[in-house]
Each structure stands twice: as C-alpha cells, then as structure tokens.
C-alpha cells in the first residue's frame, strides 16, 4: 500500500484487522514457517468475517474513501498496458482531478478516464481531493470525442467526493460542463463502461458516469450528496451522517437493487486495499467480459439500450400505482 504509513488512516472499525495483520507480519519476520501462522490466519479471517457481516452503510462510506484504497491511476497501471496520459481541455487548462489517456486492454486500444484522488496531503492538494473543475469535465469529454472518432471504447473510473464547489468552478460553468457531458455521453457513438471504484459523489461523479454498463466495486458508494451534507441539510445536524448514509441507500447492493448498477464487482476479503493484485485481476476479467458483450451488440441497438437504460430510471406512481 503506497503512500500512507500512519495507522490513523484506518477507520476505527478496521483496527482489529490492522492489529492481527501486524501480529502475523511480526511472526513471519521471525520465522516464515512458524506453525502459529495457520491459527493466526484463521483468526484474521474470522475477525474480518465478523466485521464485514455487520458493516454499516457509513462504514462502507469510510471504506470507499479509504486513503489506501486503489485509485484510478492504480487501476490503470494494474489492468492496462502502455498508458499514455493526455492532458488538457484545449480551452482553458488541465485539471489534475480528472486524468485520462489512451491505453491498451488485452491488445485493444481504449480510452480510460477517471477522477484521481491523492493519498498524501501534498498529492491531495495537487489533485484537489479528486474534485474537478469544469475543465476536468471538458477534458473528459474531449477525450471521449477523440475515442468516438477512432472507434475506441471508453472506460471511466468514478472516485470523487463531488464536483468542486468554488468560485472559479462557478465562473467557468460547472453546471454547463456537467450538463453538456451528460447530454453528449448519451449520444457518444462508441462502447462505454463506467466503474465506480470508490466514492461516487453526486453530479461530480455522474459528469463522467454515463455508459452502457455500470459496474460498481463491492465496497464503493454512490450518492446524490455526501451523507455529511445530507445530514446537515435534512436533519439540520451534521452529526447524523451515519443515519443519513443508511437512509440514503448508498451501497453497491442498494444501487443494484434500484437498477442503477448492472454488476457488483467483488473485492478481496477485507476490501480492495488489502490486495491490489487480486482486485485488479477480478476487475480485469469483468471489464473483458462486458466489453465483449458490448462489442457483439450492434451499434444502433447499443445506443437505443443506453438511452432506455437512463430514460427508465426513477420510481413514481401513475394513477396511484407505481
């Protein structure tokens, strides 16, 4: 796990896992073939099972925001080959909170685009905590259009607390940038896969989140506003974030149930941050599988399905019936 060394990075509920891992590592350092190890590993698994069997929604939010969790660049390096990063929106600037570029996936050229969070304070300042300005969305769209022109599939990675709420972002048209992306992504004439890898923060996530297949990591979350903001607005009390997370239904299972997400991608025991390689391996297979399906679907049918997918979202009553 690169970047973060402090134990403080772990949320409280994870502390027993961290402790047993340290014990196991200490034993391995002394004697890699110690007979104690089998028992310790069993214990580790039972601790994790216990914690994960009663994980609350808010704990999932904490996992999704875990600083050691793989971020977009980690996935790009772990799953794709020959990544060439492309910068800038050709209008205003280059937003480091959204990265993108060409890469090779099993020999095929694809366009990858994603929010990029940092791990250290320094990185987070540079990446603006993964909160894009309008030029980030415009860069994303520029790269999508480039992919469309040459028939490359687009794969986006979602991991942001939200689009940045700041003066410059408003001046440069945050709303216009996101709205335009939504409209253009619906019309984009190429295959598109969206993967929610961490935090799916509101319009800032959706701004690069339209696609033919929406995949979501098991411990990722997706919400209309952060549980903290929801708590402050609806309960007028910022300490109700845990309750808000439950009420808002933010987990992958919730989103699958509502038909927003097509597929949940399973994570290694304890979460993606404990085993990057395994996480990449599983996701790579799912990308390959879904890309195969999309490539076998006729283009017209693909676009019709994408439109209908979003057109049918939402639950309402008609003549008193839902």
């Amino acid at each position: 796990m690169p970047g973060v060394k402090s134990k403080r990075a772990f949320p409280d509920f994870e502390k027993p896992i961290v402790e047993i891992n340290e014990k196991i590592n200490a034993v391995i350092r002394k004697d890699p073939s110690s007979p104690e190890l089998e028992e310790l590993n069993r214990k580790r698994n039972s601790i994790i099972d216990d914690i994960f069997s009663r994980l609350t929604s808010y704990q999932k939010v904490q996992l999704a925001r875990h600083p050691m969790r793989p971020h977009t660049m980690d996935y790009i390096e772990g799953i794709f080959d020959d990544f060439v990063e492309l910068h800038g929106d050709r209008k205003f600037g280059d937003d480091k909170a959204i990265i993108g570029g060409l890469a090779s996936f099993k020999g095929e050229t694809v366009m990858v685009i994603g929010h990029q969070k940092g791990r250290t304070a320094q990185e987070n300042i540079e990446r603006n905590f993964g909160m894009p300005h309008p030029e980030g969305y415009r860069k994303g769209l520029r790269l999508m259009k480039l992919a469309e022109k040459f028939g490359f599939p687009v794969i986006t990675f979602i991991d942001t607390p939200g689009a940045y709420p700041g003066v410059k972002a408003e001046e440069r048209g945050q709303s216009e940038a996101i709205a335009t992306n939504l409209k253009e992504m619906i019309n984009l004439r190429t295959q598109m896969i969206v993967i929610i890898i961490g935090e799916g923060g509101s319009g800032g996530a959706l701004g690069i989140g339209i696609g033919d297949k929406i995949l979501m990591l098991e411990n990722a979350v997706y919400f209309v506003c952060t549980p903290e903001a929801c708590s402050a607005i609806l309960w007028r009390d910022s300490s109700k974030a845990e309750q808000a997370a439950d009420t808002m239904r933010v987990t992958a299972a919730d989103l699958k149930k509502f038909g927003i997400v097509d597929e949940i991608v399973s994570e290694p025991v304890g979460g993606a941050h404990w085993d990057y390689e395994k996480t990449f391996g599983v996701l790579k297979k799912r990308i390959g599988y879904n890309l195969g399906i999309l490539k076998r679907t006729g283009k017209e049918k693909l676009f019709e399905k994408r439109y209908n997918k979003f057109r049918n979202m939402g639950v309402y009553e008609e003549n008193g019936r839902s």
């Binding site: 619906i186 989140g209 209309v224 607005i233 939402g314």
Partner: peptide, 13 residues
C-alpha cells in the same frame, strides 16, 4: 435528496 440516488439519475435521464 429524499429520493436518493434515483433523484441524481434524473439528471442523466
């Protein structure tokens, strides 16, 4: 907000 993620998706829709 009371319709959670489904309300967010109305933007896309």
């Amino acid at each position: 907000m009371q319709e959670g993620i489904l309300s967010l998706m109305q933007m896309a829709k």
